[in-house]
């Protein structure tokens, strides 16, 4: 398998939409020979990205949609998640690993994405998340 596999979905919120996206990505990555660690990493990061976009990004957007585009080839998997919200400053999110923040129940999604993906970048006003997983990370 050498051809790039691409996908596009519009998510409105139901859990089944996230599951369908996760399944499509997992299948494409499996076809391209990504290992178990890679599948775990991408699934976790995508879960955080899509839920954040739906739950937080579009929180104040009636009938908001999330645009999800992805591509997988033999070397890397790329993901773009864009919500219709006003964005946010990811640098303003408190570090959840600081001792004072360890008991705060929320705020770990971004750090997990950064830990498990090769690249994580918030674009525009912060409502467009671009992530890359490189197979070389899948040792």
């Amino acid at each position: 398998m050498s051809a790039r596999i691409e996908g596009h979905a519009i998510l409105r919120g139901p859990r089944a939409e996230i599951d369908a996206c996760q399944s499509a990505v997992e299948q494409a990555m499996t076809e391209h020979g990504y290992g178990r660690e890679a599948l775990f990493a991408v699934r976790l990061a995508l879960e955080e990205a899509l839920v954040n976009a739906i739950r937080h990004g579009n929180r104040h957007v009636p009938d908001g949609q999330v645009d999800f585009r992805w591509s997988v080839d033999a070397d890397e998997a790329r993901f773009d998640v864009q919500d219709q919200g006003e964005g946010f400053d990811p640098d303003a999110v408190p570090d959840p690993t600081e001792d004072d923040n360890l008991e705060i129940p929320s705020g770990r999604g971004i750090m997990l994405m950064k830990a498990y993906m090769s690249e994580v970048e918030y674009r525009g006003p912060g409502n467009h998340l671009a992530m890359v997983y490189r197979k070389s990370k899948d040792a």
């Binding site: 976790l44 839920v51 008991e103």
Partner: peptide
């Protein structure tokens, strides 16, 4: 096999 940051949040709440 998989858990999200939201699940971690619930564990923290239970621990508290």
């Amino acid at each position: 096999e998989h858990l999200s940051s939201a699940a971690l949040g619930t564990l923290i709440t239970v621990n508290s």
